[in-house]
Simulated scan of single mutants.
Amino acid sequence: MKRSTLALPLLSALTLATLTACGGGDGDGASDAKTTDRAKATASASPAKPSVDPAKELAKLLVTKAEAGDYNVREPEAGDAMATTQEQLRVDKAACAPMAYATNYLPLGAPEASLVRVADKGTSTYNYITLATYAPGKAEAAMKGLAKAASACTGGYTAKSDKASTTYSSVKKETAPTGTDTDTGADESIATASVVPYKGTQTMRTQTFRFGDTIVNYFSINTYGFLNGRSSEADIPTDLVKAQNKKLG
């Protein structure tokens, strides 16, 4: 008895739904319109998915002090950079702009986001890590631009900003490290040595790796020569490259 009492309202509801769905004439249009309106209302009421912040995602990929061994890893000091944007850096040879960016720890090309860290061991050598993320295809284009610049600017160039001017007497392509010890699966890499004729010669280096849509650029400079009037040379530390690239591979 109880079963038939419960079943009757259910049967009535199902029958009503069937009749509504199968009805003809003007009722069809009105029902469809109402259904469409309800669907639109539901869609507009649904909370939008939060957009991904490229900078926050990129920050997760930066090597930390705990991961970098003996290196102090921190943000560069305010006012440390010759230029903080590509627009602030002017180059006498347009083709050399990517080299100027790489040696001033600015991102290459047109990234969606970029972050910079400096790592050192308390000595006169400073290693800058510039990490940048790109829209599909933009990272490959940025690497091509850097490769062309390294080839076109062997005779040197001058970069200027409102703060300073630096003349590079030469740019030379070098062999970027490969293999599991350093690149940990990078899609491509470029390495360069740039010379600044200041109280002798000051040689600074870059190593740049692309991992899919992410580029990491390492720039090392030995400030001893600049401060003491002697020639100096900086090398990219393999252990630091290994630690950072491991997080990208």
Rank of each mutant, 00 (worst) to 15 (best):
M1C: 09
M1D: 13
T5V: 11
L6C: 01
A7V: 05
L11N: 06
S12Y: 13
T15K: 03
A17V: 15
L19Y: 13
A21G: 04
D32M: 09
K34Y: 09
D37K: 14
R38I: 11
A41E: 12
S44V: 10
S46K: 07
P47Y: 05
A48L: 14
K49G: 10
A55I: 11
A55T: 14
L58A: 09
L61F: 06
T64I: 12
A68W: 07
N72G: 04
A78C: 01
D80L: 09
A81Y: 07
T84N: 15
E87M: 00
Q88T: 02
R90H: 08
D92H: 09
D92Q: 05
K93E: 12
A97C: 01
M99Q: 08
A100F: 03
Y101N: 09
A102C: 07
T103C: 08
T103P: 03
Y105F: 14
P107V: 02
P111W: 03
E112D: 10
A113I: 00
A113N: 00
A113K: 01
A119W: 05
D120P: 13
D120G: 11
G122K: 05
T123E: 09
T125D: 14
Y126I: 15
N127G: 13
Y128F: 13
L131A: 00
A132P: 02
A132T: 05
Y134Q: 04
A135K: 07
P136G: 07
A141T: 13
G145E: 12
G145A: 10
A150G: 14
C153T: 09
T154Q: 15
Y157F: 15
Y157R: 03
T158L: 07
K160A: 14
S165P: 10
T167K: 15
K172E: 11
P177G: 06
T180M: 06
D183M: 04
G185A: 11
A186D: 07
D187T: 15
E188V: 07
S189Y: 04
I190T: 03
A193Q: 14
A193S: 15
S194P: 01
V196Y: 01
P197W: 04
G200S: 06
T201P: 01
T203F: 01
T206R: 01
Q207W: 05
R210I: 00
F211R: 02
T214V: 15
I215K: 10
V216K: 01
S231Y: 07
S232Y: 02
D235M: 02
P237L: 02
D239A: 07
K247V: 11
